[in-house]
Simulated assay, not measured.
Amino acid sequence: MTLTWAEYRRAQRRSRQAWVLLTAAAVALVAGLGWFFTAGQFAVVDAPADGPREAPVLAAGWMNAVPSVRPVPPGPAAGLLETLQVKGRAAQDNYDRSAFGQAWLDADRNGCDTRNDILRRDLPDAEFTEGSRCVVAAGSFREPYTGRPTTFRRGAASSKAVQVDHVVALGDAWQKGAQQLTAGQREHLANDPLNLIAVDGPANQDKGASDAATWLPPNKAFRCHYVARQISVKAAYRLWVTPAEKEAMMRILGSCPGQQTIAAAAQ
């Protein structure tokens, strides 16, 4: 069978199109395999399932907001960061935990101490000790600092596996403005649900009194919320940041420019 010149050209054009499609499919397959073996199968830390990208402040119906020095303004966290004072640390040699009042008071006056309030808030399946409506006996949750499923069980040896962390560490706050607060304001800072999250005990110990310049959660998916929460707490209690701390916060927020401030009223 003899093809005409027009038929020959059409067949040639279809052949080229077929090769283009095959080449594109091959490139996509190679790229997909490359992603899987270099990142995809190990992309755990940044996946939403690894831990909450947000953490609650209040639980409706039984938690109350703790009065801060001033309200946290709504809006981008990066914008609020620009309003914070930037200067060096004050001396820490006179720091004493007692300056922030008795640990785990019932600051929101709901009848339960702050530590159990936070455990109940952050552990969705929290169980109480027999005869109590406050004391959390056990529970499990997706821990935010590491992103790992974690179980809490009350006990002399086991309780420390899950700790309640001050997002802005009290030692850090002391060096950045808390010395100028009243005793009552420092007490609120130490018990404000805005500044508290149930977390992995070893991660909390590793953090210590560090700020964002020297420690960030290993779970990268939580870092934007973590930094925004620190900024919100510092704004609420008129605390400042160091130049290195501000730089670290700006770097984190650069990956999430839409990150908003965190406030109890928004819950």
Rank of each mutant, 00 (worst) to 15 (best):
I252C: 00
S140P: 10
D113Q: 10
R89Y: 10
A157M: 01
S15L: 10
I231A: 04
A236C: 11
A228Y: 09
D113G: 06
P144F: 03
A26M: 06
A24P: 00
Q17M: 13
A203I: 00
A212K: 03
G51H: 07
D117S: 09
A157D: 12
F141C: 03
A156D: 15
L58T: 02
A59R: 03
D200C: 15
A266S: 13
R13I: 07
L22H: 08
A236D: 07
Q205A: 04
L181H: 15
N195F: 14
Q163W: 04
A11V: 12
V66I: 07
C256G: 08
G208N: 14
P73Q: 09
G258W: 01
R154I: 12
R251E: 10
A91H: 08
T150M: 15
P74Y: 14
K246I: 03
G208K: 13
Y237K: 03
V27H: 04
V227P: 01
V162H: 12
F100N: 13
A183D: 15
N110K: 10
T242L: 04
R10I: 02
A47S: 11
P144L: 01
C112N: 12
S159M: 13
A156L: 10
A77I: 05
S132C: 05
E127H: 07
N219T: 01
P71I: 13
R121E: 10
D211I: 09
V135I: 13
P67K: 03
A248F: 01
P243C: 00
R9I: 05
P149N: 08
Y145Q: 09
D192V: 09
A103Y: 08
G208Y: 15
P257H: 06
V69C: 05
H188Y: 12
A235E: 09
T4W: 02
A90S: 12
L81Y: 09
A28V: 14
I118W: 05
P48Y: 02
E143P: 05
M63Q: 14
T23E: 11
R120Y: 00
A31S: 08
E130G: 14
G32Y: 13
R133Y: 06
V20S: 03
A107E: 11
D122I: 05
S159R: 15
R133Q: 08
Q180W: 09
I231Y: 04
A190C: 06
R186F: 13
E130N: 13
W35V: 10
V44I: 15
A228H: 07
E245M: 07
G155E: 09
F128K: 01
L81N: 13
R53N: 03
A18F: 12
T242M: 07
R16V: 15
F222L: 11
G184V: 14
L21P: 00
R229N: 06
A156M: 09
H188A: 14
D108M: 03
